[in-house]
Design a protein around this nucleic acid. Structure first.
Lengths: 180, 180
DNA sequence: CCAGATTAGTAGGACGTCCGACCTTCGGTC
DNA sequence: GACCGAAGGTCGGACGTCCTACTAATCTGG
């Protein structure tokens, strides 16, 4: 990886793991230090992923959230989806979808179009500029491994499975991931 | 677990894992779908942890961020730390510390006191009310397993180790976690 | 001993997330 | 056919995070 290059914001490097340190303190007084350490690590890992991906997307004027929405649209048959559907797939709140689509629309990457039959529904349609940018941005984010570094392919998959199990327990989805 | 109880906000449960679905689409057109799935899972896992812990902390008027700061202070010798030190340990930006301490101070849970020798530095000192609340709040967050559910003790530890490896690669800390 | 670099903290703004409240439209029921 | 609950989006506010820029104080070199 990079030597001293563009790293997540809190550039200062500690000589020890502050989470492991906190876990030690925690277990001295309470119980469940392992869960605390895991939860805090998840929080911090998200911070790292977000920082690295956002950094890679900055030249394109995109953020992770907006990039995800854009990619989702490229995956759809007609390049358009109802806002509500987007919220479901991205697992974010309806108001967050409104926010993101507002910004993407302001950048000319998507366009709001009325649903042909249901006048309640608004479709979000990706523009040609949006498709082009999504393609370039994807090259950039894959180049940084989407912020997932230091893990072997096997470990990356292991991480995904562990989190999928946790997400399923939290009610994210019903069926098993069916890892065939 | 709960039946239909208080779950993370997007209450709707999908019949499939949207991340696994996205991974399928991704691999059809690009490469590195595993990293994408892992990164997205980390993002979503953080959302779940945050929602569940915040829910447990709501009766106390706390959030995860403020709770973490409070607990950090209880771990310190004299119950006070310089703001900068807090930012290091919590791995957040200095301005985030200012924000959090502002709110905690407004709640009477901490107090800003000048550093005895260095007049640049401000110490954040936990109050008696802060200590009491931290104790009660800890009972609440441990009761929900800090949002880490559906995993065995072994898997929780595995998750922590994987994320620690990733965090170390990202430059979070220098030495190995030394899991003895 | 003084000038420049560094460190500590804050102010203002951007972004994404959530929630509660609200309006419009659809659909089912009577 | 009319009503009333449900569904789709949006608005305004709260929160936490980050960044850039700024002030005040300390440290370091000449």
């Amino acid at each position: 990886m990079g030597t001293v290059g563009p790293m997540p914001s809190p550039a200062r490097q500690l000589p020890f793991d502050p989470i492991a340190e906190a876990r030690r303190h925690w277990d001295e007084r309470w119980s469940g230090g392992a869960a605390m350490a895991a939860a805090t690590s998840v929080m911090r890992a998200q911070q790292i992923v977000l920082a690295q991906v956002d950094e890679a997307l900055k030249p394109f004027g995109l953020t992770f959230a907006r990039y995800e929405a854009l990619v989702l649209l490229t995956f759809s048959r007609r390049g358009s989806l109802p806002l509500g559907k987007m919220g479901e797939r991205l697992m974010i709140h309806p108001t967050s979808v409104t926010n993101i689509v507002d910004r993407l629309e302001g950048q000319g990457l998507v366009r709001r179009v009325p649903h042909p039959t249901d006048r309640r529904t608004t479709l979000c349609e990706i523009t040609d500029e949006g498709r082009e940018l999504a393609e370039k941005a994807t090259a950039a984010v894959t180049a940084v491994g989407l912020g997932i570094t230091g893990l072997s392919d096997r470990e990356v998959d292991q991480l995904f499975r562990l989190l999928a199990k946790m997400r399923r327990a939290a009610g994210d989805f019903a069926a098993a991931a069916d890892p065939s």
